[in-house]
Simulated scan of single mutants.
Amino acid sequence: MSDTSTGPIEHLTRTPVAADAPVVLAVDDLAVTFRGSGRRREPVRAVDGVSLSLRRGETLGLVGESGSGKSTLVRTLFGLNAPTRGSIRILDQDPNALSGRDLRRLRNRMQMVFQDPYSSLNPRLTTHDIVAEPLRLMGRYDRDRVVQLLADVGLGEDVLGRRPAQFSGGQRQRIGIARALALNPEILVLDEPVSALDVSVQAQVINLLIRLQEQHGLSYLFIAHDLSVVRHLSDRIAVMRAGQIVETGPAERVFHQPEDAYTRELLAAIPIPDPHRRGALTGAIPHPLQHPGAAAGPVSAAA
Rank of each mutant, 00 (worst) to 15 (best):
M1V: 11
M1A: 04
I9Y: 01
E10I: 09
E10V: 06
L12G: 03
R14S: 12
P16R: 06
V17E: 10
V17L: 14
D20Y: 13
L25P: 03
D29Q: 14
L30Q: 01
L30C: 05
A31Y: 00
A31Q: 04
V32W: 00
S37W: 15
R40N: 15
V47Y: 00
L52E: 06
L54R: 03
E58G: 04
T59G: 07
T59R: 04
E65A: 05
S68V: 01
S68C: 06
G69Q: 00
K70V: 01
S71W: 00
T72S: 06
V74P: 01
R75F: 01
T76V: 02
F78P: 02
N81V: 04
T84M: 02
I88A: 10
I88P: 00
R89Y: 09
Q93S: 06
N96F: 07
L98G: 10
R101W: 07
L103D: 03
R104F: 07
R105M: 13
M110Q: 04
Q111M: 09
S120I: 03
R124A: 09
L125N: 06
L125E: 09
T126L: 03
D129Q: 13
D129T: 11
I130L: 09
I130M: 05
E133P: 15
P134G: 05
L135C: 05
L137Q: 13
M138A: 15
G139N: 10
G139S: 14
Y141S: 11
R145H: 14
R145S: 13
Q148W: 15
G161W: 13
R163L: 14
G169T: 04
Q173Y: 03
L181E: 02
L181G: 00
A182G: 09
L183H: 09
L190N: 02
A196G: 03
D198R: 01
Q202N: 09
A203Y: 02
Q213G: 09
Q213A: 13
E214V: 13
Q215A: 13
L221Q: 08
I223A: 05
L227H: 05
R231M: 13
D235Q: 13
V239W: 00
T248P: 06
A251K: 02
H256D: 15
P258L: 08
D260L: 08
T263G: 05
L267Y: 07
A268W: 09
A269M: 07
A269H: 00
I270W: 11
I272P: 02
P273V: 08
P275G: 06
R278V: 14
A280S: 15
G283Q: 15
I285W: 08
A294R: 05
P298A: 10
V299C: 04
V299T: 12
V299L: 11
S300N: 14
S300P: 07
A303M: 14
